[in-house]
């Protein structure tokens, strides 16, 4: 589904290489996790895939179902089925959460040549999904993420994901700033979306999120490359021994 080959990326503004040749394939129905120390390039990977400005691709490719992602505008990538749950969801004063979601859902439908969702149908669907994520009516009415707690913001990301029903979900440190209960709520939301047609890339520092969202494959990223790939046991190894051992082993 998501295929990344030899992806090299530098910052646009300065001569700093962040990704130095990333190879990664996420199959439909699978959950891949990327772990790694700070500054290893995990978040950059998520931003480059979703089309954020400020990065320059200097080599390699990234495709979703065979479509070249890197050639597309961010909204085109979204319409194709790519979704990024932000590490720091953006506050947008003056734009109601509900208006925002409905605009997004219908923009994607329009881009795919599907019929727009009626206001009534949208309301019915969002109420249902919001309920399971414990998002109340007030949160839906308020401006996007404005005045939301850290946990509310992350739940709101998952709600967007549930409404947009993407093929490929990237979760960038969705566990950061969450207490145990909030993390469980978020993980339940993600698990509810797991199915045979959908791929996940879960970026995290810590193993604890992976207790709730069980990965099929775990990758260790360091200095702009995937340095080691394994099963869920790799996450446990990181939890017990930190990154130092693995990095030393790779360097040897």
């Amino acid at each position: 589904m998501l295929e990344i080959k030899g992806l090299k990326v530098k910052l646009e503004e300065e001569d700093k290489q962040i990704l130095k040749g990333v190879d990664l394939t996420v199959e439909a129905g699978k959950v891949h996790a990327i772990m790694g120390p700070n500054g290893s390039g995990k978040s950059t990977l998520s931003y480059v895939l979703s089309g954020r400005d400020g990065y320059e691709v200097t080599g390699g490719s990234a495709t979703l179902d065979g479509e070249d992602l890197l050639e597309l505008e961010p909204e085109e990538r979204a319409a194709l089925g790519l979704f990024l749950a932000f590490q720091y969801p953006v506050e947008i004063p003056g734009v109601g959460n509900m208006t925002f979601l409905r605009t997004a859902v219908n923009a994607q439908r329009k881009a795919r040549g599907q019929e727009e969702m009626s206001a009534t149908e949208f309301l019915k669907v969002i109420r249902e999904k919001a309920k399971t994520l414990k998002i109340d009516a007030d949160m839906l009415k308020r401006p996007v993420n404005v005045g939301f707690s850290g946990g509310e913001k992350k739940r709101n990301e998952i709600l967007q994901m549930a409404m947009l029903e993407p093929k490929m979900c990237i979760l960038d440190e969705t566990d950061s700033g969450l207490d145990v209960d909030a993390m469980k709520l978020v993980a339940d939301g993600v698990n509810a979306l797991r199915d045979a047609g959908r791929g996940f890339l879960v970026i995290t520092h810590y193993q604890r999120l992976l207790d709730h969202i069980k990965p099929d494959v775990v990758h260790i990223m360091a200095d702009g490359r995937i340095v080691k790939t394994g099963g869920p046991e790799l996450a446990l190894e990181v939890e017990n021994n930190g990154y130092a051992d693995i990095l030393a082993e790779v360097a040897a």
Binding site: E73, P74, A78, A79, V90, I92, G94, A104, V105, A111
Partner: peptide, 28 residues
């Protein structure tokens, strides 16, 4: 706000529509 614009676009809202949404929000 470029951050807000990217956020909207990453959810599938095309750039001109996203700009209008933010413009209306500014005037609100």
């Amino acid at each position: 706000d470029e951050e807000a614009l990217f956020y909207l676009r990453s959810r599938g809202v095309p750039s001109p529509e996203a700009t209008d949404l933010l413009t209306l929000a500014f005037l609100a």
